[in-house]
């Protein structure tokens, strides 16, 4: 169970990107987060696994507080949170298998990571998950040789390798063609029920949100202005979220780089 309460994020002295956000996600539900570019969707997801530092508020995953964790504790918490990215964020020059096993980096030792000698159980799990999404035959192919949909499936498997307790997906379909993006959404939906995993999906495409999720959360200017079932997501709600914002539907969502820009420019990782 993921409980977010009073989450606020502001960059420097700018207006807050997120203001007093409350959200509780239970069990194996799939939640779509919709909103125009800059509404704070991406920031919200990144606050959960602390790629972005929340200004205030509380985030609890199965009872454990995530805000304020540091160093090894933060890394242990991140292991339990899988993330799927808009740009797939694969390491192009490594093989599919290495990319998939990267999901275990929080568990294995540095020596194992360098020599790629992962435990047998991890390799077993990797093959099972890759078979589940039909990419097992690519195991030793370089990640950049795959098509967009295949690359995103590698991204999904990498996140699942972490044995996560919650899965975050930041615009997972925005870089894909319509057909492939339907497939990825379907995959996320069925994985959520198979693994009884709560899934939070930032998504731009409202009709996909309505088709593949059981709950929609609408953000505008960092505030939650809709929370309900897809059936209740009427054109009024749509107007409230996107209304008056120019070309919100056509504009591609802000890439993560744009949000990072606000932070300290030389932030080391």
């Amino acid at each position: 169970m993921l409980e977010i309460s009073q989450l606020t994020k502001r960059y420097g002295q700018d207006d807050p990107v997120l203001t007093g956000l409350d959200l509780t996600v239970e069990g194996n539900s799939v939640v779509a987060i919709v909103g125009a570019s800059g509404a704070g969707k991406s920031t919200m997801l990144r606050c959960i696994n602390r790629l972005v530092e929340p200004t205030s508020g509380s985030i609890k995953l199965n009872g454990h507080e995530l805000v304020g964790l540091k160093g090894a504790e933060l890394r242990r918490a991140r292991r339990r949170i899988g993330m799927v990215f808009q740009g797939f964020n694969l390491i192009d020059r490594l093989s599919v298998m290495e990319n998939v096993l990267a999901g275990r980096l929080g568990y294995v030792s540095l020596f194992q990571a360098v020599t790629r000698r992962y435990p047998q159980a991890d390799i077993e799990r990797a093959f099972q998950l890759m078979e589940r999404v039909d990419i097992a035959h690519y195991a030793n192919k370089r990640a950049d040789e795959l098509s967009g949909g295949e690359r995103q499936r590698v991204g999904v498997v990498r996140a699942l390798m972490q044995e996560p307790e919650v899965l975050l997906a930041d615009e997972p379909t925005a870089s894909l063609d319509p057909r492939t993006s339907e497939q990825i959404m379907m995959l996320l939906q069925s994985l959520a029920s198979e693994l009884s995993l709560p899934v939070l999906i930032n998504i731009h495409n409202v009709s996909q949100a309505k088709t593949y999720t059981e709950r929609i959360v609408g953000l505008r200017h960092g505030k939650m202005i809709f929370d309900g079932r897809p059936a209740d997501f009427t054109s009024d709600a749509l107007d409230a979220i996107y209304g008056g914002i120019e070309a919100a539907q056509d504009e591609p969502p802000a890439p993560p780089a744009a949000t990072r820009k606000h932070e300290a420019p030389h932030e080391p990782f």
Partner: peptide, 10 residues
């Protein structure tokens, strides 16, 4: 698929 190799080395 049982014929898939279950070990993997880089």
């Amino acid at each position: 698929r049982s014929d898939t190799p279950r070990t993997w080395r880089k």
